[in-house]
Amino acid sequence: MVSRPYYLLIRMSSGTEQREPDHVRTLGHEEYDPIGTAILIGIYFLILVLLWIFMYFVEFLGNGPTVVGMALTVVGLA
């Protein structure tokens, strides 16, 4: 454990009233900007979209024959 200067030890409110020796600062809701989360989740979003397109249009539709409706059957989308 890295020991931090005493002036950085801050008592947390309610639930987590215990010493957090690793803390160098305390961020409240207003000061905290989760930009890193936004970047990671954006990357995840892109991966999902690209993999979905690949899976549906390449792996699935390219894997024919596929079960199709009879010529005049209206596809039921309840």
Binding site: H23, R25, T26, P34, G36
Partner: peptide
């Protein structure tokens, strides 16, 4: 959940001194 949980982790990392767009990941325990 993915957003909330990662944002909570990032909050912890920044309180532990993490910096940068993604550099905070290194500050996680």
């Amino acid at each position: 959940t993915a957003f909330t949980v990662v944002a909570s982790m990032e909050h912890g990392a920044r309180q532990r001194g993490g910096e940068g767009y993604l550099g905070w990941l290194k500050a996680l325990p």
